[in-house]
Simulated assay, not measured.
Amino acid sequence: MRRVSVQCMPSLTVSGRSWWSSPSAASWSCPPPPSGAAVFHRSLPGYRATPLSDVASLAAEWGVRRVVVKDESTRLGLPAFKALGVYYAVYRVVQDLLGGAAVQPDVAALRTAAQRVPGLVLVTATDGNHGRALAHVARILGVPARIFVPDVVSSAAIEAVRQEGADVVVISENYDDTVALAAADSASRPGAVLVQDTAWEGYETIPQYIVDGYSTMFGEIDDQLGADAASLVVTPMGVGSLAQAVVTHYKSRRQRVAVLGAEPDSAACVLTSLRAGRPVSVSTGATVMAGLNCGTPSSLAWPYLREGLDATAVLSDAEALAAARQLVDAGIPAGPCGAACVPAVRSVLADPGGRAALGLTSESVVVLLNTERSREHPGEGEG
């Protein structure tokens, strides 16, 4: 498991009420992600790079050369990016459970290997898409899945998980408490393995596999941009695992690439933690950005967020919904979580110091990560 040594806390600058910046993030660096995830993903049936689409209206609004959206709404037959992390994590977990035995990077070999693990049951807690992805992979591999879901998640998202054949347990708790219940349940069941996309002390190996799996997305972006290079990458944030993958990819390079995180104002655990200088938990409620409705940063993600985020912005449900409509009108079927990137940029640029904090010029290329499919499109699911 790779770790990042934290030398010091960067000085954070509050700019208005809705965003923070970290000037020292521009010069911070970290080791690159491992290369094996992309090789594995390319072996999967139906794999293809998801689209990267220009949105000229946003480029004109923000005074930059290009704004492009990485559209994860059809990743591996599911409505969100989560399958990248889940597939790769299960691949690595099965190898670990077989004593480190090598498994060829293809589904047939993985299915055979998974069924050699005595009593294997895949367990997780979810706001929707992560659990659906795990249930989907479990069905393909012919092993059971047990998925815990907070009752604030939409009935459509819960039903989508059930349709994958998983045992779904709906809990009248928030996301953090649901994760704790899933962890306790997996620990009590012989053969059960928790495949969770957040980390805490003592549970970090599998979440790191998930983060490593997300890295395939950014290699695709590099290839799709070609001679261009990203100047700013904007990512939605829940517990921060996707943001950790973004930071790992772009801060392991020589050229400056700014990273901006976006989170709901009703579940701003990252901004609150940055303000406190340590990971803290916040109370959460219902939000249209269900996949970002998380109260505690991942312990693995925290050093990357603290050191590598150039800025963090919070936004309202109304802003996310308006941005989703704008992206849908532009031909990108974005849901509220992915659309959160748009008002995050607007929030920063509304401040006189925001443009400089993000390092934007008229020649900049801004990459927005649309992490989920719109509710108006079939197969809808949250994060």
Rank of each mutant, 00 (worst) to 15 (best):
P10T: 02
S11N: 15
W20V: 10
S22D: 06
A25D: 10
A26K: 12
C30M: 07
P31C: 02
P31H: 08
P32F: 01
A37W: 02
H41N: 06
G46Q: 01
Y47N: 12
D54T: 15
A56L: 13
D71I: 00
E72N: 11
E72I: 13
T74R: 10
T74I: 05
Y87E: 07
Y87L: 10
V90F: 08
V93L: 11
V94R: 05
V94G: 05
L98T: 09
G99R: 06
L110K: 03
A113H: 12
A113V: 07
G119F: 12
A125G: 08
T126Y: 03
G128T: 11
H130E: 11
L134F: 02
R139G: 09
R139Q: 13
P144V: 00
A145K: 02
A157C: 14
E159Y: 10
V161G: 07
E164G: 11
G165T: 11
N174V: 04
N174I: 03
D177P: 04
T178A: 06
L181I: 14
A182K: 02
A183F: 06
S188V: 10
G191A: 14
T205E: 00
Y209N: 08
V211E: 13
S215L: 03
A229Q: 15
M237D: 01
G238W: 09
V239Y: 05
T248H: 13
R254T: 12
Q255I: 12
A258Q: 02
L260R: 00
P264H: 09
S266I: 15
L274I: 05
R278Y: 05
L292H: 06
N293I: 09
L300W: 08
A324H: 04
L327C: 00
A339T: 03
A340N: 13
L349T: 10
S364D: 07
V367M: 05
E372S: 05
E382A: 01
E382G: 00
